[in-house]
């Protein structure tokens, strides 16, 4: 049995951004010597996410835009507000990212794939994205690989 935990850094450069991390997941699995098993991918942060979807530029725009409609950073004036927009003494700053936490909850923070014959098993159009909701920031993604070596 092999169990490996990797931490990769992803640097976002926009407010919201979908960053394709599929090649990194594939590379780590292929280097792991795991033949049959599972790879688990999880963001370390509560204002970012992990999303699996088709790897096309139009969806990379549509998905953050839709989440922004569901949880707008600044709600329409005079409508509602967020309790999280208050002084967070443990951070020494105001919590101005309630909407980004909500997007992370809605969009999810993890995914997993089977491993077969030493490779990640994905649908033909599936890609693994790190999704930034509160960028730009340097972020950490955990990738855990678990499984059996080839006989």
């Amino acid at each position: 049995m092999i169990i490996q935990l990797h931490r990769i850094e992803v640097i976002s450069r926009k407010d919201m951004e979908m960053i394709d991390i599929t090649p990194e997941v594939d590379r780590l699995v292929e280097q792991s010597r795991v033949a049959q098993g599972m790879v688990f991918v999880m963001t370390a942060h509560t204002t970012s996410g992990i999303v699996v979807t088709e790897g096309v530029e139009c969806l990379e725009r549509d998905i953050p835009a839709h989440l922004e409609r569901l949880a707008p950073k600044d709600p329409p004036e005079g409508s509602y507000g967020y309790y999280h927009n208050r002084l967070l003494d443990f951070d020494g700053r105001l919590g101005y990212n309630a909407a980004d936490h909500l997007k992370s909850v809605i969009g999810g923070i993890n995914t997993f794939f089977p491993i077969e014959l030493g490779k990640v098993v994905r649908g033909g159009r599936q890609r693994v994205y790190f999704v930034e909701y509160d960028g730009p920031l340097a972020r950490t993604v955990f990738i855990q690989i678990i499984g059996a070596e080839a006989a």
């Binding site: 443990f90 020494g92 730009p136 340097a138």
Partner: peptide, 20 residues
């Protein structure tokens, strides 16, 4: 002293934010 609890970030993140 400054009481800031956020993660340390590479300088390029601050510069990217200035760009935005």
């Amino acid at each position: 002293t400054f009481h800031c609890g956020n993660n340390f970030q590479p300088l390029e993140v601050m510069l990217a934010e200035m760009d935005i």
